[in-house]
Design a protein around this nucleic acid. Sequence first.
DNA 1: ACATTGACAAGAT
DNA 2: GATCTTGCCAATG
Length: 112
Amino acid sequence: MENVHYQKIWHTVLQIPVGKVASYGQIADLAGLPGRARLVGKALGYAPKELAVPWYRVLRSDRSLAFPAGSDTAKRQRELLQDEGVLLRNNRVRKEDLWQPDLAELLFKLKY
DNA sequence: ACATTGACAAGAT
DNA sequence: GATCTTGCCAATG
């Protein structure tokens, strides 16, 4: 898989701090790919394991988990998030846990 | 080329 | 919020 966009997406997701979450659309925007929220999910699915991309810190714009509630993946995601202190109430995270990146700092980091 | 598919989003109800 | 409906757009077949 040699899609250029995937790299940008992975690196952007890598910037999400521990204990914070971001939406697919937000990541797409930050990665310079506005309107491509759906591509983010796909990219995460292809993310190489050795990159350790925190896929579980990405969820829907309404702050709900993207996987079917009760599915194994959803359970694992919920667990990983709670281990970082992100609490879920009925498959939704609190808005205080949303990532609000400083653009200047972020763009600097993504230069590499 | 053409059609379908998505780990989505925004607006309306 | 919860549900629906429409819009989206690259990737895939």
